[in-house]
Design a protein around this nucleic acid. Structure first.
Lengths: 127, 127
DNA sequence: CGCATATTTAACCTACTCGTTTTGAAACAA
DNA sequence: TTGTTTCAAAACGAGTAGGTTAAATATGCG
């Protein structure tokens, strides 16, 4: 799996149990046992889900006696939303026709030698 | 891997190459060869990335002679942003531009199936 | 200390992901 | 038809994900 921050966050969000855990944490901090209760999986499985969320920066953890409390950390979700924002004009109905027109214009200009070229993504960057 | 729509989309976005492909497609439709060019992986690898994106509903495809054109389909990204919107109050509130985006989302889409209350998560639902 | 509680870690399994190379198939041109 | 271009599918391997059970590790209480 990719190890960059955005990939870690998307990967963490790609599991319904982990998303449900985050949703639960919007109601306040919770112990592992409390987080495990709604699901038909064993508690160690939940422990590992929490580790994935923690690695992605989506939760932080503290102790209360023998229990460990999980706390929602939403900052990475803001980063995700920021990344998604650039696509808004592609789903916004009022701009869709304009986008298609611009794309068509760009296709018509494909053999224009002055056309901007070669973003050089070697190294797997999305920008 | 989970097979619900949201999980498929998050999973698809969890790879830097696939995100870069989506970014590239904001500049217009492209062939497999064009999409493969920036990366140090073979063409079949890109073909499979495109299949993942297509399964997630993030691209559609058409033919032009022997080539196959990929076209960005941003609708699932709106769903993702909608899902993320509920966490907005957990990160900084001083982001006007984001507020506007989310307000626009609410206008564009009144129904939010993931907004259901009455948790009952047995069966791995997040709400 | 000895014990209970809450959680993590270890070991293991199955299945999937992501890459490769090789082969096959669709569209078209000569 | 034959060949070319472009892409998909098949087959394989290494590594990862997510589940299990069983053992180890804090923490607090008597």
């Amino acid at each position: 799996m990719a190890t960059d921050q955005l990939s870690l966050v998307f990967q963490a969000l790609a599991d319904p149990i982990r998303r449900a855990i985050l949703t639960r944490l919007t109601n306040g901090d919770a112990t592992v046992a409390e987080l495990a209760e709604p699901f038909n999986v064993t508690q160690p499985a939940i422990s590992r889900h929490l580790k994935v969320l923690e690695t992605a920066g989506l939760i932080s953890r503290s102790r209360r006696a023998t229990a460990r409390l999980s706390h929602l950390e939403a900052e990475p979700l803001r980063d995700v939303t920021t990344w998604l924002a650039r696509y808004q004009r592609f789903w916004d109905e009022s701009h869709e026709r304009l986008d298609e027109l611009l794309a068509a214009l760009q296709n018509n200009r494909q053999d224009d030698p002055d056309r901007a070229e070669a973003v050089s993504m070697k190294g797997n960057e999305d920008g």
